[in-house]
Design a protein around this nucleic acid. Structure first.
Length: 575
DNA sequence: TTTAGGG
DNA sequence: CCCTAAA
């Protein structure tokens, strides 16, 4: 049984044996991850991705595994969000808890998925909101001196950490009955009383809190926070937690079932860390499939309710989806987009896995849209439209190669990031004031887009510009208009302008008279173009002799007066 | 490459 | 929007 677990390794923990931090014995990779902050303050939490081999030993995960897991991770997020850390699929994290204490930090446990957290290796304590919060509450509950009713979220890590230490102590001395923990996943089914018991088992002390949710959270967090691979002595197998003699198992560490996510590909090979010992003892790297199978299996049989949850679980947006999102994001003009963005936000704030989504977007989003590589239809489940345009050989777009592809155009990486930053803002940008989409279309489709261009509804401003452009430069000089009036709208090609104009023309000549009959046609298809604009379009068309015979036919006799006036104005204004 | 038109 | 024939 192999599982991938993410270990949250506290730097301090690594040196628990007395090795001073300064010894430089810490793996570079880790350092890189966890040391962006000179702050002596404890708690550089680092997540490492490891795999549990059949014997319960941990081995560093390979890059491939990391990738795999990342995927899973992605999949979990939404659920995580919805289920509020109570997923069927558990994520076990370990971490060195106490820094000042060199003695055994033996608290371990299972945690509900904190996938997100795992993602953010770059930061010390990442997701500001929930995790810290939970941690805080968990720790608060652990320190004897603290009133456990304190569920508040102390925004500071300091107190938090301290609490951890004490908690750790407790855990060590309290000898919690972990057998009770096996069903962490089933917490939901437990009664308050049971939860309280579990709580006691977990933290070694009583609780009088009756809030189920609180308890559950507490418990899961407590378990989560207390994992320590390097010192753990538990094994969890087939839904059971087996306790082993700590002393004899110093090296063995725990086996956690189910999947856990983490993202430190550097894990493999980093020396001087508890993990390595494990790795050494068991360099087994095969059987990757088993992992997922197991995973599924476990999650399914864990608990019926879990199953349901699984079913309910909202599908996480695929990479492709995200990709599309990112594209849309930059244009910020569709209602759908907005909603999506919001959901994104939601997931972020909810799971605090901000980095993950962002990363994904960053990578996946690489493919920029140009006229040539456009997105299929309305972005519906189209796996990917391979539309190789003439004269522009494109690499095939492999959904699963996004990352790789994105690396090719580093040039645009920054831009993308910028866009990402705009991401949040855009969500609330007015949908029809799409000035934000400027300069962004002409990205070399090196990313292998080849998808159909997204339908980008013409905004009012665009239409106006177009009309003005036509008025100024004359219909037909699309390239000119494009260049001069649409310089900022790189995604509108001269052809687009032409097409749009054609449509405007059509509209301008058919709308007024047909207003009634057109009803059923479909007025809502796109933003209704204000009559004044249509009027002007018509004027322009007339004065430029563009009015197709069939259009100019009958109607607009009554409009001529106004038309004329407008025309004159127009002329005087632009000519 | 840009236009014009059909699809 | 896409595709192409023409220019």
């Amino acid at each position: 049984m192999e599982t991938v677990v993410s270990m949250e390794v506290n730097e301090e923990a690594k040196v628990e044996d007395g090795i001073a931090k300064e010894t430089g014995s810490e793996p570079v990779s880790l350092k890189h991850i966890s040391d962006p902050d000179p702050d002596p303050e404890p708690d550089p939490v680092v997540y490492k991705l490891v795999r549990v081999d059949g014997e319960g030993r941990l081995v560093p995960a390979t890059d491939e595994e990391v990738l795999v897991v990342e995927d899973l991770l992605e999949d979990e997020k939404p659920e995580h969000c919805a289920a509020e850390c109570e997923q069927p699929i558990e994520c076990i994290k370990t971490e060195g808890c106490s820094l000042q204490k060199n003695h055994v930090q033996s608290s371990e446990g299972i945690s509900s998925v904190q996938l997100d957290a795992a993602v953010d290796l770059g930061k010390k304590i990442i997701q500001p909101e929930e995790i810290p919060c939970q941690m805080a509450s968990a720790s608060a509950g652990n320190s004897i001196s603290q009133p456990m009713s304190a569920v508040g979220c102390p925004g500071s890590e300091g107190g938090l950490v301290e609490n951890w230490s004490s908690r750790t102590d407790l855990a060590t001395t309290g000898k919690p009955d972990f057998s009770k923990l096996k069903g962490e996943i089933c917490l939901d089914n437990l009664t308050v009383k049971e939860l309280q018991e579990t709580f006691r088992a977990t933290f070694g002390r009583e609780t009088f809190v009756k809030d189920k949710r609180w308890l559950k959270r507490r418990i899961s967090m407590g378990l989560t926070n207390s994992c320590d691979f390097s010192t753990t002595a538990f094994m969890i197998k087939d839904n059971e937690v087996l306790k082993k003699d700590k002393k004899e198992n110093r090296k063995k560490s725990a086996v956690y079932k189910d999947l856990v996510v983490g993202v430190a590909s550097e894990t493999a090979g980093s020396p001087t860390n508890g993990l390595n010992r494990l790795a050494d003892s068991n360099p087994n790297f095969d059987d990757r499939k088993t992992e997922s199978l197991l995973l599924e299996h476990d999650s399914v049989r864990e608990d019926p309710s879990l199953e349901q949850r699984t079913a309910k679980r909202v599908r996480k947006p695929t990479k492709r989806y995200i990709e599309e999102m990112s594209e849309e994001e930059s244009r910020g003009s569709s209602g759908r987009l907005v909603s999506v963005v919001k959901s994104f936000e939601h997931s972020q704030s909810c799971s605090k896995a901000c980095t993950m989504p962002v990363q994904n977007v960053r990578l996946a989003g690489r493919p920029m849209v140009t006229r040539q590589d456009s997105l299929g239809g309305s972005g519906v489940q189209v796996p990917y439209v391979s539309r190789v345009r003439k004269g522009r050989p494109r690499e095939n777009f492999m959904p699963f190669m996004i990352a790789a592809a994105s690396e090719n155009d580093n040039h645009h990486l920054e831009r993308k990031e910028v866009e990402l930053e705009k991401y949040v803002e855009l969500k609330r940008m007015d949908s029809f004031e799409d000035n934000s989409d400027d300069n962004m279309g002409s990205v070399p489709a090196s990313s292998g887009g080849m998808r159909r261009k997204h339908h980008r509804p013409w905004s009012l401003t665009e239409v106006v510009k177009l009309v003005e452009g036509v008025a100024r430069y004359g219909a037909g000089r699309w390239s000119e208009i494009k260049r001069l009036a649409f310089a900022s709208y790189s995604y509108r090609t001269s052809v687009d302008l032409k097409d749009k104009w054609r449509n405007l023309l059509r509209a301008s000549f058919s709308q007024l008279p047909a207003e009634k009959g057109m009803h059923n046609a479909r007025k809502h298809a796109s933003i209704p173009i204000p009559a004044p604009i249509l009027l002007r379009v018509r004027e322009l068309a007339e004065m430029q002799a563009q009015v197709p015979a069939n259009f100019s036919s009958s109607k607009f006799t009554g409009q001529s007066g106004g038309s004329d006036r407008s025309v004159h104005e127009t002329r005087s204004g632009y000519l």
